[in-house]
């Protein structure tokens, strides 16, 4: 067996193993009968006004994370980069949403750095 095949087999095996473990963890978490403490709150780095957003209003976006630059991407359009060092707040005009199904807000924050908005 060539080295390429060994590495490919190892990677595929790891992918399957990790995928199965993640799926099992998700199942266990969702089916657990143990109530989670009310104080456990993991929230997103993003806030929007209005919340929930609608396609017929300007959208004010508030970023609470520590990235210096973030981006938003309206459905089917090129990503737009925004400097958030000054205020952490920016407005996307409603005309950007005409005929669109949603947008994505992206920062380097792991799970909390991404917010997908569907109208």
């Amino acid at each position: 067996m060539s080295r390429r095949k060994i590495i490919l087999t190892a990677l595929c095996g790891a992918v399957v193993l990790l995928g199965a473990t993640a799926a099992r963890s998700a199942y266990v978490a969702s089916s657990s009968s143990i109530p989670r403490p009310l104080s456990v709150v993991t929230d997103n780095d993003w806030g929007v006004i209005p919340d929930p957003p609608t396609a017929d209003q300007d959208l004010t976006v508030i970023y609470r994370g520590d990235d210096e630059e973030v981006q938003y991407e309206v459905d089917g359009e090129k990503p737009v980069r925004v400097d958030v060092t000054k205020t952490g707040r920016f407005v996307i005009p409603r005309k950007a949403f005409q005929g669109k199904k949603g947008l994505t807000l992206v920062a380097h924050g792991g799970e909390s750095g991404i917010r997908v908005i569907r109208f």
């Binding site: 990677l11 790891a14 992918v15 990790l18 995928g19 473990t21 993640a22 991407e73 459905d75 199904k101 949603g102 994505t104 992206v106 920062a107 380097h108 924050g109 792991g110 799970e111 750095g113 991404i114 997908v116 569907r118």
Partner: peptide, 19 residues
């Protein structure tokens, strides 16, 4: 090698995002 959470955008036909 570690698993990462990933998100679909509006449609499965679109690129998504992970972090």
């Amino acid at each position: 090698l570690v698993p990462a959470v990933h998100f679909r955008r509006v449609s499965v036909e679109d690129e998504g995002q992970t972090s």
